[in-house]
């Protein structure tokens, strides 16, 4: 029992796969972003990205959209998760299944659904027109609103599940105690539930933010070529212009930002799970 050789043996394929097919590729692409062809260190690509107005615009749009997406997810996700936590277990199970269903359908399928709903002649512009809000032939496609709508649908389950986990662990008697002490219903939610749920909201927000910054299929289909985001720009740079070092530099920036947000996320989820 001493050396636990068999533990290493059964973990080895997975660890090797992780190392050779994940860490090495990710590491080498990140390294490529700060190296010249000769192999010396150069910040040139990163600097180019950070100084050209076009790319600054992309970064700004990416951050702006991610913030909006995260805020919408949190604002809708908290009451949704709270209600889920307070209904019976059978209904809760159904709700979990219903909101994970979109999470598990292919991103192209979901996005296609939104294209039908938001495009010219789609259901949403039709309704808006009959309310007198917009002209004929109005389309929501290729707008930032479309991107937010499509992304919120995808990322909403992450937020809800993250908050739900925390609320379900909370002692429901806390709330009863608050009511007994004279809080109204909404006060007890605000004073008792919200503080308890905050770690879940923060963890969910960090996750939603990082994921929304790294998706590109939904933004590129719903936003179109005129509204590029960082991940889409990486894809374009790599496949259209084949400027690999520059694509790598953009990856490095995306990766660094994500990592910076993931550290507090991991610490929060550890604490919540502990």
């Amino acid at each position: 029992m001493a050396s636990h050789r068999e533990d290493w043996a059964i973990a080895a394929p997975g660890l090797l796969l992780l190392l050779l097919a994940f860490l090495v590729p990710v590491g080498s692409i990140l390294a490529l972003g700060v190296r010249t062809e000769g192999g010396e260190f150069t910040p040139a690509y990163v600097i180019r990205f950070l100084t050209e107005p076009y790319y600054l615009g992309i970064s700004w749009r990416t951050i702006k959209l991610s913030v909006v997406i995260t805020l919408v997810c949190a604002l809708v996700g908290f009451p949704f998760a709270y209600i889920m936590a307070r209904v019976g277990p059978r209904l809760r199970l159904w709700l979990v299944i219903l909101i994970t269903l979109p999470l598990m359908t292919s991103v192209v399928v979901r996005t296609f659904g939104w294209m039908v709903l938001l495009g010219r002649g789609g259901l949403v512009p039709d309704i808006m027109r009959s309310l007198g809000l917009v002209r004929r032939n109005y389309t929501l496609m290729h707008t930032e609103v479309a991107i937010v709508v499509g992304m919120v649908q995808i990322l909403f389950p992450f937020m809800v599940l993250s908050i739900l986990g925390v609320i379900l662990r909370m002692d429901p008697r806390l709330e009863e105690a608050a009511r007994v002490m004279g809080c109204t219903f909404l006060q007890s939610v605000r004073r008792v539930v919200l503080p308890v749920a905050t770690p879940g909201i923060v963890a969910g927000s960090l996750l939603v933010f990082t994921l929304s910054a790294s998706y590109f299929i939904t933004p590129s289909l719903l936003g179109g070529a005129r509204l590029p985001v960082l991940a889409g720009s990486i894809y374009e740079t790599a496949t259209r212009t084949q400027d690999w070092p520059f694509a790598a530099a953009q990856s490095l920036i995306l990766f660094t930002a994500v990592l910076l947000l993931l550290f507090p996320y991991i610490r929060l989820t550890r604490k919540a799970g502990g």
Binding site: F22, I29, S214, L254
Partner: peptide, 23 residues
């Protein structure tokens, strides 16, 4: 190691995709 083996779930897939393509 637990955190590491689960990291492909949260790190940007596009960066991984690009790296794997290059490698």
């Amino acid at each position: 190691l637990s955190a590491l083996v689960l990291s492909p779930l949260v790190l940007p897939t596009i960066v991984f995709a690009l790296g794997l393509l290059m490698l």
